[in-house]
Computed example of a mutant assay.
Amino acid sequence: MAEPTQGRPIDILLVEPNPGDVRLTKEAFKDGRIRNDLHVVNNGQDALDYLEGQGEYEGRPRPDIVLLEINLPDMDGMDILTAIKESEKLETIPVIILSSSEAGEEIVRGYQLQANAYMTKPPDPDEFIQKIRTLANYWIQVVELPADCGL
């Protein structure tokens, strides 16, 4: 069984095609002094390969949290969410949707598919960084994350 998340950096998988949002997310984690290993993929297929440890991602660490943009160039992020929550190996990983969409139906659909949280990305970079810091403080410093139970 893998070690618990306490006392080690949190492994975060960021699924984000926008280089600007990747940069802001990295900045938020760095400036917030939150111990983490941030792994970034920019499309849905790479996200699925990473999560399953396939191809170039063989031997990668199992993420403790997935930050998922739903608007991806090659597939619907909701399909990735569904794949995670339907997988016995992955279903306990918290998935936080990050999206530019404030559409009520998207938010409802995310929660129906068992997203653990839905965050709308603000257009202002400073506000975006603050939201990511708040999200990180909650999910990394407040809640207990499930350890990889050897699945």
Rank of each mutant, 00 (worst) to 15 (best):
E52N: 15
M75T: 07
A83L: 07
A47W: 03
E106R: 08
Y138K: 00
I140F: 13
V142G: 09
G104E: 15
V41G: 14
T120E: 00
Q114P: 01
K85Q: 05
M119K: 05
I93G: 13
D31M: 08
I129E: 11
Q54A: 10
N42Q: 15
K131S: 12
I97T: 08
S87E: 06
A83N: 09
Q45S: 11
Y111F: 15
D79H: 07
Y57P: 09
Q130E: 15
P19M: 08
N137K: 13
G44Q: 11
G32I: 08
P73W: 06
Y118Q: 11
L13H: 07
A147E: 10
P63M: 03
R133D: 02
E88G: 06
K85G: 06
Y57W: 15
N36F: 00
P9L: 01
S100P: 00
I132G: 06
Q45D: 14
L13S: 02
L113Y: 13
V143I: 15
A147V: 02
Q45N: 14
E88Y: 09
N71V: 08
I140E: 12
I129Q: 14
G7D: 10
T120W: 01
E102R: 13
R62G: 07
M1D: 04
D126H: 00
P63G: 04
L67N: 01
R23M: 10
G104W: 01
N42K: 12
Y50S: 08
E3N: 05
I107A: 05
G55R: 03
A47L: 09
Q6W: 00
N116Q: 15
P61Q: 09
V143D: 11
K131V: 05
K26Y: 01
A117H: 09
Q141E: 15
E102T: 11
E127C: 04
A147S: 11
K30M: 12
G110M: 07
E52I: 02
N42A: 12
A47I: 10
